[in-house]
């Protein structure tokens, strides 16, 4: 699946929301994303996003031992991350409303013939 800027922005928002709940590590995030229907997004996509979010100070990470294999890196939201999530939600609500309006009106009228 091609990664457009919009898709990345949306994934950013979803990741922030997932991380808000409790500390999570990468694999867990992708499982949740796929449960929510993002199954077509390649799982690795989240890591560059997490790297950027960490650089921008939206998330922090700690490494913790796991029962099997190397340490997992758990992420949590910073204050800045919480703020960013709120802004994303507001942006998303506006966008969702506009898209729904546009689709509803245009498809109703559009089916009766265009022009």
């Amino acid at each position: 699946m091609s990664q457009t800027q919009m898709m990345k922005g949306i994934l950013d928002g979803c990741l922030l929301a997932i991380i808000r709940g409790k500390e999570v590590y990468g694999y867990e995030m992708t499982e949740r994303l796929s449960d929510y229907g993002f199954g077509e997004v390649s799982e690795g996509t989240i890591y560059p996003l997490l790297m950027r979010m960490q650089r921008e100070g939206l998330v922090t990470s700690v490494k913790k031992e796991s029962t099997a294999g190397p340490k997992r890196k758990y992420y949590s939201l910073t204050d800045k991350g919480h703020k960013e999530l709120e802004e994303f939600l507001a942006r998303w609500k506006r966008l969702e409303k506009s898209v729904n309006n546009a689709i509803r009106q245009e498809t109703n009228e559009g089916s009766e013939g265009s022009g």
């Binding site: 990468g26 694999y27 390649s42 799982e43 890591y47 099997a68 190397p70």
Partner: peptide, 26 residues
Amino acid sequence: GEIAEELEVHFAEAEKNGKPIEQIVG
């Protein structure tokens, strides 16, 4: 080292669940 290690954890769990590598790296 940091990102390679993080991906290694991911690969290991994905393989346990029978996912092919394409599902991770595209």
